[in-house]
């Protein structure tokens, strides 16, 4: 509870949380905020911005502004789900490697190092290119598989060091099970790292999804910021003067990333008192 209080007192965390709430409102109330259906194709194609279409229309005659509002749903969902799944995998692998020395640690550590070095986007591209279907869950799967290594690598030494602290030794002497020690003694003490890991992975998820969809490896008919950018580039939005079509989704991606990054920073400062202002 103490940590939560500290978190909300932090200015960076407050700004980050407000930004995230803003995106959540956009996603949840998209049907009420967007003026038109994002898939309706009845407007004049490639129209510049006007009062009827703030950001203009696509080559298929869809309203760009409505598409961007609806796109918040997939982009935010991918970020949060990737953050969650990646963190779970990182925690499992980091904890197993840190807690069980010897063969388990050696194997998992080698695996972590390998996945850390293999460049993420090319691996995602190769995976996605062979995939038979390309929905949101395919993209989430591909990003998660390539993105867990960093967290596991950060958690492992932390678990190793906590395992040798006196309060953990005390639990061992009392005869507590490994399960109890891991979940009740070690896990709470790594909460800050795990939270930071979640925010970091969420940024990674949002940016990777946008990149993959921009290349055309997503489902081009789904509505997300990545696909809006894909169509903007495909239909040469800039050269028709429809700069808002390209500017806004990219800016929103960067702002969503910034909101996760601000919270990440705040968590870092709370768990590492040295980073706080003196």
């Amino acid at each position: 509870m103490n940590y939560l209080k500290l978190f909300f007192k932090d200015k960076k965390a407050a700004v980050g949380t407000i930004m995230l709430l803003f995106f959540a409102v956009l996603a949840i109330f998209a049907p009420y905020i967007a003026p038109y259906s994002p898939t309706y194709m009845g407007f004049t194609p490639m129209e510049g911005s006007s009062w009827r279409h703030i950001l203009g229309t696509t080559a298929n005659g869809q309203d760009v502004f409505s598409q961007i509002i609806w796109g918040t749903r997939i982009s935010l969902a991918v970020g949060l789900i990737v953050g969650l799944l990646t963190t779970v995998i990182s925690v499992v692998i980091g904890f197993l490697a840190g807690y069980f020395p010897g063969a388990i640690d050696e194997t998992l550590n080698l695996l972590t190092n390998v996945f850390l070095i293999i460049p993420g986007l090319p691996l995602m591209i190769v995976l996605a290119a062979y995939m038979p279907s390309r929905g949101m869950w395919t993209i989430i799967f591909v990003i998660t598989v390539t993105g867990w290594a960093w967290g596991a690598r950060v958690l492992r030494p932390q678990v190793m060091s906590l395992k040798n602290r006196e309060f953990v030794n005390a639990s061992v002497v009392v005869g507590e099970s490994s399960f109890h020690i891991i979940f009740y003694d070690i896990l709470p003490n790594t909460a800050g790292l795990i939270a930071a890991n979640f925010f970091g992975s969420a940024i990674y998820g949002v940016l990777s999804e946008a990149g993959l969809e921009f290349i055309g490896l997503g489902n081009a008919n789904a509505i997300s910021w990545g696909t809006v950018l894909y169509w903007a580039q495909n239909d040469q939005a800039l050269f028709f003067g429809l700069w808002g079509w390209l500017l806004v989704p990219g800016l929103l991606i960067a702002l969503l990333g910034t909101s996760f990054a601000l919270m990440n920073f705040a968590v870092d400062e709370i768990t590492n008192p040295r980073l706080r202002k003196r």
Binding site: G211, G250, I253, F260
Partner: peptide, 9 residues
Amino acid sequence: SVPYFWLAL
């Protein structure tokens, strides 16, 4: 947090 390709555009 800025997408590389967007800044490029």
